[in-house]
């Protein structure tokens, strides 16, 4: 395996490899207001609202079933909310108006999702996994996209893996391909749905390392995770969700070390000191 090689690559500066470096300008890139969602009559989101400024990292934490993932999926229109508005950049959707396919597709194009189970396409090579979106959907020339994709692979430390198939990679490598696939779409916003939860503990670091690099480059990211150290050191904003509502929201130092709400305190105690 080439784990060691990858580990080395991870810490090298790679800014130059990214074809686009977002320019943080301080204006809110993402605005969510009054988002609500119920599955078969069971309310899973109620009056969820927050903003994410361009170039910042927001971490969603909370117990399982608290609605974190549903929020993320509503941002990418994988799930349609029952009510509430989502604005990403200059695309805005009001779920209460039952938006059709086209507005949802426009909203979806603003962000890209990295899944917990990576969901790579097993029948395609690593390179094709990354180029499929830009070439097939965005209709860009394959040559150009492939050159970019190889650079992206380099930037996530997988320069030599372009022609392999996903099953030949380790879990951490697969997830890094997943990140490269998301980056290739050149989205305004990157969404991470528990990207390290399905990984063996020793593989978590390589994925978090790539994510930290992206944050350092000024990428706007919303991350659902249980990695408190990542939240503490990388994020600009932490949202604690419980029972479908945002219970507490603030800077990581405030929310994670000195929470106002009792529910937040209970959750943190369980996560940080489980025994």
């Amino acid at each position: 395996m080439s784990e060691q090689h990858d580990e080395q690559n991870r810490d090298e500066p790679r800014n130059a490899d990214l074809r686009r470096k977002p320019q943080p300008d301080g204006r809110p890139l993402l605005e969510v207001a009054n988002l609500a969602k119920a599955f078969d009559g069971v309310e899973v989101l109620r009056d969820v609202g927050f903003e994410v400024t361009s170039g910042s990292v927001t971490v969603l934490i909370g117990p399982s079933g608290s609605g974190k993932t549903t929020v993320l999926r509503c941002l990418n229109a994988l799930e349609t909310g029952d009510a509430g508005t989502v604005r990403i950049g200059d695309v805005s959707v009001d779920y209460a108006t039952r938006p059709g396919k086209r507005p949802l597709a426009r909203l979806r194009a603003q962000s890209a999702m990295v899944f917990q189970a990576h969901n790579l396409f097993p029948h395609l090579t690593v390179l094709r996994n990354i180029t499929e979106g830009p070439v097939v959907v965005q209709g860009r020339p394959r040559d150009e996209v492939e050159t970019e994709a190889r650079a992206l692979l380099e930037s996530v430390g997988l320069g030599g893996k372009a022609d392999q198939h996903p099953y030949q990679l380790s879990g951490g490598q697969q997830q890094r391909v997943g990140i490269a696939r998301a980056l290739a779409l050149d989205p305004e916003l990157l969404l991470f749905d528990e990207p390290t939860s399905a990984l063996d503990p020793e593989l978590v670091g390589e994925v978090l390392g790539v994510m930290k690099d992206l944050a350092d480059q000024g990428r706007t990211m919303v991350v659902v995770t249980h990695e408190m150290r990542f939240a503490q050191s990388v994020s600009d904003q932490v949202l604690f969700m419980d029972g479908g509502v945002v219970v507490e929201r603030g800077e990581p130092a405030a929310v994670l070390t000195d929470p106002r709400e009792a529910r937040t305190r209970t959750f943190l105690r369980r996560v940080l000191d489980p025994i």
Binding site: N76, R108, A112, F115, N119, F121, E132, V136, V137
Partner: peptide, 20 residues
């Protein structure tokens, strides 16, 4: 997840079906 991954990179129903 395969449908969702295809959807999230912008593929429509037919493209997803055919290519993924």
């Amino acid at each position: 997840g395969q449908w969702e991954a295809a959807e999230t990179i912008g593929m429509g129903y037919t493209t997803t079906l055919r290519r993924i």
